[in-house]
């Protein structure tokens, strides 16, 4: 079992002929992801890694019936691409693009929700169900199928933790990168609920960072709705206030959003919080023992 994506997923790639889009389409196809079509306006008739390209999402939907879309288009055009995917009837959209203005994402989020769809990201690495579907930019080979559900606001830091888990013999049901922006489609609580309901997931690893209150919301959710053990790691204990640490959403503002608050909130509801990424596997093993 897994959450959100598996071998039956039919993936559409928006921005498939771009540099990022074509490279990662090849990588995803190579991993075994069921990529059914791609979209680039004016690209109809082409193919990338054997995947047929269409001019519009509507045409791609009519010809190939995708049920998940991944977006690799530049920030200025990404909101439009999300709207096109939603209007095309695609229920789950993954947006990799970094640098989308917050003002554009506020209406996008509302539109996605009002259409009953789900958005992952933006500014995220995507998600992977090891051995079944890689929908994103993560290195596939570090993942192994197993009982751990992983959710994170980060990219390479997620790979770091996944790598440590895999080396320790702890494979993953699904690893989900929710993204580092202030407005994201899917929050920790949404993914926690999915892992809680997934019978194959035995423990949950949650990787947070400074900024916002998503981790605090997650802590409240864990207390009320999560019976499975949760292990956390929060990046940015040494980050100064008022400075954006790379991710648009990673900023301590007005004294809130510090790592210390997030660690305290998670520990208060019984989650084990690692002080370094390499400590995560042992805490998971202890939680499962």
């Amino acid at each position: 079992m897994s959450i959100l994506v598996d071998r039956h997923t039919r993936l559409l790639v928006q921005g498939i002929t771009g540099r990022e889009g074509s490279f990662h389409t090849e990588q995803m196809v190579e991993y075994g992801t069921n990529v059914v079509s791609g979209v680039t306006p004016g690209g109809s008739g082409k193919a990338v890694a054997g995947v047929p390209v269409f001019d519009t999402v509507a045409a791609a939907v009519a010809a190939t019936q995708p049920n998940v879309s991944i977006i690799y288009v530049p920030a200025r055009f990404a909101p439009d691409a999300i709207y096109e995917a939603i209007d095309g009837g695609i229920p789950f959209v993954v947006c990799i693009t970094e640098g989308i203005p917050v003002a554009d994402m506020v209406p996008v989020y509302a539109y996605v929700r009002s259409n009953g769809a789900r958005l992952l990201g933006p500014n995220c690495p995507g998600l992977i169900t090891p051995g079944q579907a890689k929908i994103g930019i993560m290195p596939g080979f570090i993942h192994e199928p197993g009982p751990i559900g992983l959710v994170s606001r980060s990219g390479t830091l997620t790979y770091e933790v996944v790598d440590a888990l895999t080396r320790a013999g702890l494979g993953q049901t699904t690893a989900v990168g929710i993204g580092g922006d202030p407005v994201i489609g899917t929050a920790f609580v949404d993914v926690l609920a999915l892992f809680e309901a997934d019978p194959a997931t035995e423990a949950i690893v949650m990787i947070g960072e400074i900024g916002g209150s998503d981790e605090e919301d997650a802590a409240r959710f864990i207390q009320e709705h999560v019976s499975k053990p949760v292990v956390g790691f929060i990046a940015g204990r040494t980050a100064p206030p008022g400075k954006r640490m790379g991710h648009a959403g990673a900023i301590i503002s007005g004294g809130t959003g510090t790592a210390a608050e997030k660690v305290a909130a998670l520990e208060a509801v019984g989650a084990r919080v690692a002080d370094r990424p390499s400590a995560v596997p042992d805490l998971v093993k202890a939680a499962l023992a």
């Binding site: 980060s154 390479t156 997620t158 960072e209 980050a239 790379g246």
Partner: peptide, 10 residues
């Protein structure tokens, strides 16, 4: 990577 950069500082 930003998250890894923060974790590295930590």
């Amino acid at each position: 990577g930003a998250g890894l950069a923060m974790a590295t500082m930590d």
